[in-house]
Simulated assay, not measured.
Amino acid sequence: MPVLEDGDMQTFGSELPAMFDGMKLAAVAAVLYVIVRCLNLNSPTASPRIISRNTLLSRYLFKSCPMLSKEYIPPLLWGKSGHLQTALYGKMGRVNTPTPCGLRKFLPMKDGATATFDLFEALGEHSTGDDVTMVICPGIGNHSEKNYIRTFVDYSQRQGYRCAVLNHLGALPDVELTSPRMFTYGKEG
């Protein structure tokens, strides 16, 4: 059986700080790797792949909106990660959410439902000089009073767009539901 002498213990003791430094370095490298992966910092940018029929409308849209086929290069840190955008907006968006002023319109439907949309006038001139209306259909069960819609409407108004925002049936807390139907994108019946 081997016997350890005093000289052997000193040798082992001097290796411990170097081993812990290596573990710290490995931990830092692992954390950096996770950050790079979670923020998608190494994801390549590319032009979108658009699949459509070659129609008069699609040609008009691509001609009118050349940015649809351009490569999107997001801001470095938060632009590539939807998770980080959601977390940041969850904190910052609640503090500084604009409150655009608009006019609510009520549209009675044949089945007794009352569809509503809010109309917001442009606050600036559109880059083309035209009078342009943007129709915004929020996600299911959402409406023009949600923070993300208010922020988008405010930005769009400042870019010269008039905005019409569909309010889903039953989504607005202060508008009575007049039919058993709670969702519509405009189809009657």
Rank of each mutant, 00 (worst) to 15 (best):
P44L: 01
K80T: 02
L166Q: 08
M1I: 04
P100G: 05
V3K: 13
Y155N: 14
E188V: 08
V132I: 15
K146Y: 07
R49N: 10
V95F: 15
S144I: 01
V135P: 03
L32F: 01
P44W: 00
M134K: 02
L61D: 03
E71H: 02
P138L: 04
G13W: 12
G139P: 07
I35A: 07
S43V: 06
C38E: 11
E15F: 11
R150E: 06
L166G: 03
P100W: 05
M9C: 09
T133F: 11
F20C: 00
D21I: 01
S156V: 07
L172Y: 00
M67T: 08
M1A: 13
A164Y: 06
R37Q: 13
L4E: 09
E121R: 14
T45Q: 04
V175L: 11
P108V: 09
F120V: 02
A171Q: 03
A18M: 10
I51D: 02
F62Q: 10
Q159S: 08
F106P: 00
Y89G: 12
T45H: 08
P48L: 06
S47I: 01
R94V: 02
Y161T: 03
S144T: 06
R150V: 06
I149H: 07
R162D: 08
H168V: 00
A18L: 12
Q85R: 15
L57P: 00
G82K: 06
S127F: 07
V175D: 00
L61W: 11
V3N: 09
K187A: 10
S14C: 05
N42W: 07
L76K: 10
I136N: 04
P75H: 05
N147D: 14
E15A: 10
D154G: 08
S127K: 13
K110H: 09
K63M: 06
I140V: 14
D111Y: 14
P173W: 05
M19T: 05
V153F: 07
M67G: 11
M9H: 14
L84V: 12
L177M: 12
L57R: 01
A171V: 02
N42G: 06
K187F: 12
L119V: 12
V34A: 08
E125R: 07
P180G: 09
I35H: 01
C65M: 11
K187Y: 12
F106S: 13
G129T: 04
K146S: 12
L39C: 08
V165H: 01
V95I: 15
N42R: 09
G186T: 09
P108W: 05
L32N: 10
S179L: 03
L177A: 12
G22Q: 03
N142P: 00
I35D: 01
Y161Q: 05
G22Y: 00
E188L: 00
A164V: 14
V31K: 04
L177G: 07
V36R: 11
E15M: 11
T11G: 00
G129W: 04
A171K: 05
V95H: 15
D130C: 10
K105T: 06
S156Q: 14
G160E: 05
M9I: 15
K63V: 03
T151P: 01
V153R: 11
V95D: 09
D131H: 11
